[in-house]
Design a protein around this nucleic acid. Structure first.
Lengths: 346, 346
DNA sequence: CTACGCCATGTTTACGAAAACATTTCGTGA
DNA sequence: TCACGAAATGTTTTCGTAAACATGGCGTAG
């Protein structure tokens, strides 16, 4: 591109890291021996190994991941595609995945999704495959048609907290059971019915919670009022709460997550309703702050760390033996009763 | 390792992706031309380009990032080392970094830190360099001696929300100004002094907020009571709050983040103190839930998205021209007055 | 004592892409 | 008309590593 007179001598970084060959020369062995030491092969004499390690140390040798990946076909990396990490649950799951991955010697290639379109997810997947990962975890999928992602069948995938209607491995919470436990808790307290503030309809977790809520009510012969749809934010919970206070006979509200429950609490307070004396409110997730809400929130505890670790476990299973049929794991959530639920007013 | 009789024929993935050579053969051109098309060089005839693109499409060609990185020395990836992503601010920053990075064509290699030791950070850095990134962003550093990380001088680094006493580029909030604005807000309301619930002492952000709090009080000639140290969690704020209610003359509390402020609110309520009538409480961060606390929290708004984008900007600057001296950017936080602060009781 | 085999180590090659270098094909001005 | 240069394209080399293959030394069983 420039004139050839200048003879641009290929813009190499002035100080490159030493290569195996340089370490080998320094240690007086072949580069293959250095490779064996670097990969902890056992067929190396201890004396030689020590000599090589010393040279590595002295020269500050770092293996080049790109070269290694090129020849092995493995990248030592897993991709994580996640919706809004501003959401507590997603962030925690990501953190747990990263921890588990690191312990397994993998790094994590993170890709956030802003737009909730299938195109965005597909693009993220493709970008990750470009970036070369050995497998992908999809967190909180909101894509209706996961199978249409056109993933090569060779790419291991684990779906966390998402759709289950596909052939991929999945890890998620037993949403139904968790939901059932809160709703039943409220019914057992004597409430005739339980109103529901749901998450966004395009979220699988939200939909399953809503479905379980409805099923539980129906099973108990309780009337089912239409759910109010929120978007996981406290604000949407607040707006739903303002609607709820205008509906007569509302004595119990189950919000699909704790943030929305917080919004409901606020709306109740603004409307002069006492929680739990006038109205009981329960959430889902058990974020660390839930015990400090006003009043402390009854909710369903989810162990995101376990979910994250399971994701990595399942993914590594598939990476190790490509043929293995993907498994499904469910993590049991537990009801945590605090001060925001009580029997309905007499 | 296994018996050699089996003649394991090198375990290639049965269906590998097509290489440039295959695309080239299919399109009837040289692989170099394919390379030019793949990299959008302009010295390719439009007819040829179209032919190559068609072949790429048909064969499903994906460039191999490892091979590309090996020859270019660039990886198209930035590393992010962050403390607890369960913390809202860190998660948001990470999300913003990921977004900005993706827009710039970079992927994000995430590495979480659990242990708050220098060794853990150093290990994370080294792991990232192994994984081959073009630069690193360190979020919420709690390491006292950042320069001792022994990073090669060639590795671009940006420190977000951390120590500023080093030669790395930094992006953070004008902690001092934000703190000053809340503290002055409280003083102007008529409070004689302001108590402080600080973040952990090993966090730079916490330390700077505490210092600014103290300076502001001193500048105003107000008495300075010792700060109570928390750990960013609502629980620690709650514990601090329980201590505060036993101290006479406390009329205003500034917590170093919103979660701790929430804990303080809870402690006040438990102790029968009214906020803001008896005691004013202010936080820092303006998490989305803050408007829905009981009462809605006066706090300092931080725009994490801007911080994240700035991080990427500064990092790319260094990656592009290695020589450039690292810059420092500060993001202005803004005071958000809500219902948790008021004049002290008469 | 010798041959066989295992162990430590060395040599060659492949991985896929892009830089460097080389060649061909034109169009244009002298 | 021919030389010259720019544009398009092809050929060779390089990156750092690990697999595949090759070799030499040494202990031990026959």
């Amino acid at each position: 591109m420039a004139d050839k007179v200048t003879r641009t001598p290929r813009s190499r970084p002035p100080r490159k890291w030493p290569s195996m060959a340089e370490v080998a020369a320094h240690a007086g062995v072949s580069s293959q021996t250095v490779s064996r030491v670097a990969n902890n092969h056992d067929n190396v004499d201890e004396t030689t190994r020590a000599k090589v390690l010393a040279s590595m140390q002295e020269l500050g040798y770092r293996p080049n991941a790109a070269a290694r990946a090129l020849v092995t076909g493995k990248f030592g990396a897993i991709g994580v595609v996640s919706f809004d990490v501003g959401a507590h649950g997603n962030a925690r799951t990501l953190g747990a995945i990263a921890d588990a991955a690191r312990e397994a010697g993998f790094s994590v290639n993170f890709m956030g999704i802003r737009a909730q379109t299938e195109a965005a997810v597909r693009q993220a997947f493709q970008h990750l495959m470009l970036q070369s990962v050995d497998g992908i975890v999809l967190v909180e999928s909101r894509v209706l048609d996961t199978p249409s992602l056109h993933l090569p069948s060779t790419m291991p995938v684990v779906v966390a907290d998402g759709d289950t209607g596909h052939e991929y491995a999945t890890v998620d919470f037993a949403q139904a059971r968790g939901t059932q436990s809160v709703v039943n808790h409220l019914l057992e307290l004597g409430h005739r019915s339980v109103h529901h503030v749901s998450g966004p309809p395009d979220s699988f977790a939200a939909r399953r919670r809503a479905e379980a809520w409805e099923r539980t009510l129906v099973a108990a012969g309780a009337p089912v009022a239409p759910a109010l749809w929120g978007d996981w934010t406290a604000r949407s919970g607040y707006l739903a709460g303002r609607t709820l206070v205008q509906i007569p006979d509302v004595t119990a509200v189950f919000a699909a997550n704790d943030q929305m429950a917080l919004g409901v609490l606020r709306a109740m307070n603004e409307a002069g309703r006492s929680v739990p004396d006038d109205i009981s409110v329960a959430g889902f997730d058990d974020i660390p702050e839930a015990s400090f809400f006003e009043p402390p929130l009854t909710t369903v505890h989810q162990d995101f760390d376990v979910v994250g670790r399971h994701c990595v476990t399942l993914l590594l299973e598939q990476i190790e033996h490509r043929g293995s049929s993907p498994r499904r794991l469910a993590v049991e959530p537990t009801l945590v009763v605090r001060a925001s639920t009580a029997p309905p007013p007499a």
